[in-house]
């Protein structure tokens, strides 16, 4: 799979269509984000497999925003899975990235990764490989839906009790681009307190994921307390889909809540 990407990226770089390609590199025994600017470096390009398939995914869209802010006139390529592509589409609608300045190079996720993520669309619209994994059932959400209300409460409070308030869920999120953030505002949630006010801190963030969350799960992976944040935001996405027939990143349409 990475051979196809390398070929594609080499083309893009040599033809001058892109200034650089934001992907993942294996270097010094680690995998991390890297901006490839010449073909010779492409040997070290990887798709983020470490111990398991795709377990070294990174918020590349977030890196891309940093670069685009500084160099808005240049075009960059970026490695995208299904979730990353949803992120790009949503970021375009929020005017955080310019679609004319981004070239997405897509890869489909293997079924085991799609299953682990319970992903609804584990592949981008266009990708370098043919085999696409099937969409998955949302078991994590339905298993909580099936609990008695008191058990649900106990479960979430047990999880929120562990929060160490690193803000990693927000800091890693490709869709969290606001300069002023509600979860950091002392008016809404007392700052300086561990654990942060329960369940206000997490519900406030969940509400802000309405029309935003593209279900990449990076928040879940970044959480030092292993709080199942992805499940919480999946539920939010389900509710919005039911009410407004809208899932961010699955169409080019703007969020019904987007007033920009």
């Amino acid at each position: 799979m990475s051979e196809n990407i390398k070929t594609k990226v080499a083309e893009l770089l040599s033809s001058g269509q892109i200034k650089g390609f934001l992907g993942l590199r294996s270097n010094e025994g680690h995998i991390g984000p890297y901006l490839f600017t010449n073909e010779a470096e492409l040997d070290s390009l990887v798709v983020g497999d470490w111990k398991n398939r795709g377990d070294s995914r990174y918020p590349l869209n977030k890196c891309l925003i940093n670069i685009a802010c500084k160099y808005p006139e240049d075009t960059f390529g970026v490695l995208v899975r299904g979730c990353d592509e949803r992120g790009l589409k949503a970021l375009y609608t929020w005017n955080q990235l310019n679609p004319n300045k981004v070239v997405a190079v897509g890869i489909a996720c293997p079924q085991e990764l799609a299953d682990a993520c319970e992903c609804l669309k584990p592949y981008p619209d266009e990708c370098v490989d043919d085999e696409k994994a099937k969409a998955c059932e949302q078991k994590a959400v339905s298993s909580i839906d099936a609990l008695a209300i008191a058990d649900r409460f106990a479960l979430w409070i047990r999880e929120f009790t562990k929060c160490v308030k690193c803000y990693g869920c927000r800091d890693v999120c490709p869709m969290c681009f606001c300069k002023e953030c509600s979860v950091g505002s002392d008016d809404l949630i007392h700052t300086g307190q561990l654990p942060p006010e329960m369940p206000i801190f997490h519900l406030t963030r969940a509400v802000h994921m309405i029309g935003r969350c593209i279900d990449c799960g990076l928040c879940n992976e970044a959480c030092p307390a292993d709080i199942p944040l992805r499940t919480l935001y999946k539920k939010v996405a389900d509710i919005i889909d039911k009410e407004f027939q809208y899932r961010p990143g699955y169409t080019d349409a703007k969020s019904p809540l987007n007033v920009l």
């Binding site: 680690h30 995998i31 984000p33 690193c166 992976e221 970044a222």
Partner: peptide
């Protein structure tokens, strides 16, 4: 990973392959 553009630090991204933090960080680290 420390992200820098033209010699200016712009961000911090936890390493997923670090044996210690495995993709996580605390508020100070971020």
């Amino acid at each position: 990973y420390l992200e820098s553009i033209d010699g200016r630090l712009v961000g911090t991204i936890p390493s997923k392959t670090s044996p210690v933090n495995k993709g996580k960080l605390c508020i100070k680290g971020w």
